[in-house]
Write a protein that binds this DNA or RNA. Structure first.
Lengths: 407, 407
DNA sequence: GAACATAAATTTAGACACTAAATAAAAGGA
DNA sequence: TCCTTTTATTTAGTGTCTAAATTTATGTTC
């Protein structure tokens, strides 16, 4: 299954990748470094490096002194060329478009966010596309990058996406994001476009730059307005047969958990309810007089000041989340569960209750943490998705920017 | 990550595997067949075939006529040599040891089962090992196979096993199966021993020879005495960080589901209860007078004859199972859920209720079916596990039986 | 500063695996 | 018997790697 026929050229390609992998992780490398880490001969290593330099993926550094005592002929030093191109990471929300751009080392070179004008829910596909392309163009321009430098685009959407990057129809919001981004829209730019569910990208982000570093099995709950879960098992994203894995929105089962409610929405809902019932609470003061619209922030703030009503709301939310985590832990046995999303900062207040509840709900409860990646978590994951694609296909691709003559 | 350094020899190894893969699936092959399916040149294909024949993995067939009109020089015909070795598949239950042996094409050559003598729960490791080795020796002897013919042993155990094949400590029954099978026990036989959770093997079996053929994402509930679930996503088994994935035994959460109760145990429990309460039911007649020990079989039989009490018990069981399936479907989005285990035949009676309940518990409920693989499901999966190992490592291994001189 | 030690690069010869093209072989049919 | 067809085999050439010898560029020592 795994294997397909090979030619000597495939062999070289494999070794190009092996050397690139080492360079990406290890910074500047001498030939000897690469010999140690790849097991190849010096002759081969040097040939591969020269090949990579010729193709534009690697730079040879000048004759700066290596650190320490130096005897013998100075080593040539090679470095992965992070500027050989860039990747875009987009987060398409219901009302907002966020775009990050990074070089091939993953260094973020620019960020931009833009609201969909007017009433977002009613925006036409074309209006949506205009905002998206506008945001992308702006972030590229600000970073001084031509469109030809873009080697891949990762895009997170708030709906179900299968493992081939196709938006699964028949889901909530699925039509909102089914905009032909992979095919028609940027055909002239010839960008490889990779779609993925936003919670899945949050999981990639957490494993790349968040608490999940070094973890092979983790779940990330993107619990802002909606409630979505990104699942990584053995270092790979889970999708299920139609991409619905982790889409716990439809979980009607666990008593008290269900519908599509994320933390923010629940806080708002119960906060509003408390006000409507006229219960005495700090939330009222924070919201201000004359309005009944409670934002989640106020509830968390009131709780931070020990307001009993707000604390009770958080307790209720935490118990609800704990139940989902318990089910998740039982079915998937992740090492770590991360709470992320718009309210991640405040979610820390939920942890004590969650950790108190878990042992009664499941044996061996997973470790639970709160994300520290903030708002850009999905866009960050989108960058990672794009980088994964580029790294996987690197030898075959043509570096962006200059058209790079390859023999 | 994925790539490691390569030499020309690795290339040949890849092509050996590619050719073997085609042969395993396609039966007897001519050179032209292989050219079409691998993309290699005729010269290479023939060289690879000769190589495989020399190593013993492939047989060249005599000059039998090919079907149809034959012009031109007759093609040499090659066939995967299923008799180049065999694999063992073991199912270690609490009280029973089952062993299957199959050739490398997966054709079962022998079966044996043996009870652990005395009170199984109290058997010492040595007693257990004696039964295991005894069963293995018998099945090999009956099939007329020497121990040197065994290329791998797959073993299913009723406890948690991580993805490296290590039994995770601290679980129910974990010490019962931690017998040093991989290392000490058969050291003299030098067999590669692969441990895996029994429900996971049931999943492999369903995908190999059961209802799950061609399915990439499925869950198999092994629901006899205990309740365990084997999960396959994108064609791969899920283990989770410690192997606990699918070990729903500890799911205390879903109201009414939990503990370790499988279908048989529940049927027995509620059947006994009904008798104790003195309710009028066919079960009593089936069990016979003077005893209160109800076996699951009687409950299913009574239900088949429309006994109201038995039907009510099945209804209760089905609702319970439906809830687990709903959670499973929501979190993992499998294409198919298979009910398997000792009572699989009878479990068909549960399907109508399960399918009626599911839509109210989750959107897009998965397809649910009952296994037709019967008792040997775990041993069958164990064979598959062993075959996977052998197929993956085939070119490097030495065929069993004769010591096969390789140049 | 010349001779030496050292580490790395480069060159050379050889092995292995593949392709492509020419040649040979083994059938059936005219 | 000769021709056609299909396949196998041989031959020459290419790409990639290793291993070993050689060269290069540096620092150290006397």
């Amino acid at each position: 299954m795994s294997s397909s026929a090979s030619t000597p050229q495939v062999l070289r390609r494999t070794n190009l990748k092996a050397v690139l992998d080492v360079m990406r992780h290890g910074g500047a490398c001498t030939g000897t470094d690469l010999i140690d880490r790849t097991g190849l001969t010096r002759a081969t290593v040097i040939a591969v490096c020269d090949d990579l330099v010729r193709r534009g993926w690697v730079r040879e550094l000048g004759a700066e002194r290596n650190e320490g005592v130096q005897k013998g002929r100075p080593a040539r030093r090679f470095e992965f060329n992070g500027e050989a191109g860039c990747v875009l990471g987009l987060d398409l929300g219901v009302a907002t478009v966020t775009a990050h751009v990074a070089d091939l080392k993953g260094t973020v070179l620019g960020r931009a966010a833009q609201r969909i004008p007017g009433r977002a829910m009613e925006a036409t596909p074309d209006e949506r596309l205009e905002t998206i392309t506008g945001t992308v163009d702006r972030v590229l321009e600000d970073a001084g990058l031509p469109t030809t430098a873009v080697l891949a685009v990762g895009i997170g959407v708030a709906t179900v996406v299968d493992r081939h990057g196709n938006i699964a129809g028949g889901h909530q919001l699925s039509s909102m994001f089914d905009l032909g981004l992979q095919t028609e829209v940027w055909r002239d730019r010839a960008w490889p476009v990779l779609l993925e569910n936003d919670a899945n990208l949050a999981a990639l982000a957490e494993r790349w730059r968040g608490i999940g570093q070094g973890t092979q099995d983790l779940a990330v709950m993107l619990a802002g307005e909606r409630l979505g879960t990104g699942l990584i098992e053995s270092g790979r994203l889970l999708h299920g047969s139609n991409g619905g894995a982790g889409d716990v929105g439809s979980l009607q089962l666990v008593e008290g958990v269900g519908s599509q409610d994320g933390i923010a929405r629940l806080a708002r809902h119960w906060g509003t309810q408390a006000l409507a019932e006229g219960r005495p609470t700090l939330i009222r003061e924070l919201v201000g007089p004359g309005t009944t619209r409670v934002s989640a922030r106020f509830v968390f703030e009131a709780a931070a000041r020990q307001d009993p009503v707000a604390l009770q709301i958080l307790d209720k939310i935490a118990r609800r989340i704990a139940r989902v985590i318990a089910v998740l832990g039982t079915f998937l046995d992740p090492e770590l569960v991360v709470l992320a999303g718009a309210v991640a900062d405040s979610a820390a207040a939920l942890l004590p209750t969650i950790n108190r509840e878990l042992p009664s709900l499941t044996e061996r409860p997973p470790r639970v943490e709160v994300s520290r990646l903030g708002d850009g978590i999905v866009a960050t994951g989108a960058l990672r998705l794009a980088l994964d694609y580029v790294e996987e296909n690197m030898p075959s691709l043509t570096p962006g920017g200059q058209p790079a003559a390859v023999g």
